[in-house]
């Protein structure tokens, strides 16, 4: 289990798709397995794991394209909440 946000997000995605070889900068949408079910799982995971609420206007594809971009979103939301 990783301690960084990127690492935790990657662990989650790899857990859902064990066959995928991923790194933090890789576009998960380009791999072709993102559907509405996984999108919801991913958003719920990020909100629960990092204690943030993602507003509608942040639910954009660019915020979820890579583990790095999701970690940046978490960091931004955490700073707003602080």
């Amino acid at each position: 289990m990783s301690n960084t946000a990127q690492g935790q997000i990657l662990d989650f995605v790899r857990g859902r798709f064990p066959q995928a070889e991923l790194d933090a900068a890789q576009d998960i949408f380009a791999l072709g397995f993102v559907n509405s079910l996984f999108a919801m799982e991913l958003v719920m995971f990020v909100e629960k794991t990092f204690g943030v609420t993602i507003p509608n206007d942040e639910l954009r594809i660019d915020n979820f394209r890579t583990a790095d971009s999701m970690a940046e979103l978490v960091d931004r939301l955490a700073r707003v909440a602080a």
Binding site: F29, V34, N35, S36, L37, A39, M40, V43, N56, D57, L59, R60, I61, F64
Partner: peptide, 13 residues
């Protein structure tokens, strides 16, 4: 709800 790739979340949820 949102538009774009997460629009399906509304139906899924």
């Amino acid at each position: 709800g949102p538009s774009g790739f997460t629009a399906g979340m509304v139906l899924t949820g």
